[in-house]
């Protein structure tokens, strides 16, 4: 594979990861924490209404996890395409 083609393939896979992770990012915060908050609030976990919990706790935790997943995926991708040196 030429270096140009290699770079293009790497970039495409990267974009795919970013799009998938950002959809989750959107779903937990704007979805669960804002748009569907009232519906989720009918579900309770302990003292928390679920929509409220996503808005004030859950989405933050998911954000942290998303970044670390991205770190792992990209480290693997760098290796696959020989960009890890």
């Amino acid at each position: 594979m030429s270096s140009n083609k290699n770079a293009k393939a790497y970039w495409r896979e990267n974009i795919r990861y970013v799009l998938i992770l950002l959809s989750i990012w959107f779903l937990v915060s704007y979805g669960a924490g804002i748009i569907f908050k009232d519906a989720l609030n009918s579900i309770r976990i302990g003292g928390f209404k679920l929509g409220f919990w996503f808005a004030q706790q859950g989405s933050m935790y998911v954000f942290v996890i998303l970044i670390f997943i991205y770190v792992r995926l990209m480290n693997k991708l760098d290796k696959k395409y020989g960009y890890d040196k």
Binding site: V18, L22, W25, S29, K37, A55, M60, F63, I67, V71
Partner: peptide
């Protein structure tokens, strides 16, 4: 109350954009 979530999500969710974009 609940409205405070704009700061909680807003000031943390930006880091996902920062890390990915």
């Amino acid at each position: 109350g609940y409205d405070g979530a704009v700061y909680l999500m807003g000031w943390t969710g930006g880091y996902v954009l920062l890390a990915l974009l």
